[in-house]
């Protein structure tokens, strides 16, 4: 078996990025779209850690910490907005969330 190189990690992260992008583009369910965005950010982290390993430094890991922080913040706000939306939806009885038309 070949030893695992940085390239392997890059390919893996590119694939995960593609999966996440597909998820955002094809799903109509807002929560699943948010999850797809988490996938993209995880792809970024795989990249960062692989490079960090390559350079034997920890800058990539620090970067990854920030990416995770941002991901958490985005998810929290996104879910907050979602709750506000659904609260209105319950009161105005709209059939469908219109926003996903683009």
């Amino acid at each position: 078996m070949h030893p695992i190189t940085t390239t392997h990690y890059l390919i893996l992260s590119a694939a995960l990025l593609a999966i996440g992008a597909v998820g955002v583009l094809i799903r109509r369910n807002i929560i699943i779209m948010l999850m797809s965005i988490e996938l993209i950010l995880n792809a970024v982290n795989i990249n960062l850690i692989a490079f960090s390993r390559h350079y034997q430094d920890v800058i990539g890991q620090v970067f990854a910490i920030f990416v995770i922080t941002v991901a958490v913040a985005e998810a929290a706000v996104g879910l907050g907005i979602l709750i506000a939306l659904f609260r209105n939806k319950a009161t105005v009885q709209a059939d469908e969330v219109e926003i996903l038309k683009w």
Binding site: S13, I40, A50, H54, I59, G60, F63, V70, G78
Partner: peptide, 21 residues
């Protein structure tokens, strides 16, 4: 705005990670 903003940020930071690499 949030969905697409976060989505684009994901791409952006992916690019950044490669730049770092």
């Amino acid at each position: 705005y949030l969905l697409l903003g976060a989505f684009s940020s994901g791409f952006l930071v992916y690019g950044f990670s490669v730049m770092y690499g």
